[in-house]
Amino acid sequence: MSTISEFLTGEHHHCDDLFAAAEDDAAQKNWGKADDDFRRFRHSTETHFEVEENILFPAFENATGMTMGPTQVMRMEHGQMRDVFAQMADAIAKQDADEYLGLSETLLMLMQQHNLKEEQILYRMADQVLGNASDALIGDMKAMAEGA
């Protein structure tokens, strides 16, 4: 069985692939495909956020007693990214490539530094503190991600 780190880092990489595809479509002004690819990217990423917010973060908070610590900052950054998703969807609806590319540049920076903190700090801590409960948690997260 894989670790929490491996499972959720894999999701990040999957979202990166979808992000790059949508950005390339927008740069080429291939709007039909951009719309599809962006929807897939947004859906996968928001599902990933929900899996973390509903399963991983509460388990982490329970195990550590830290409710105002790292998970709080991660939730706030999810909120920031959701705001940018909404603006990106508008840019696609308006077929405004400059707007979309400016937003995707912004999102990429935000998303990557967020992922960095999760992958290199939070997930590792989660693997440590959740120990034996990890397998069951990963099972729950998979089920939720697949059901979405």
Partner: peptide, 19 residues
């Protein structure tokens, strides 16, 4: 962008990185 977004989102339009 990060400072603008953290403090002023919803209060005015935040320019994106390319702007």
């Amino acid at each position: 962008w990060f400072h603008l977004q953290s403090r002023y989102v919803g209060k005015t339009a935040i320019p994106n990185m390319k702007q």
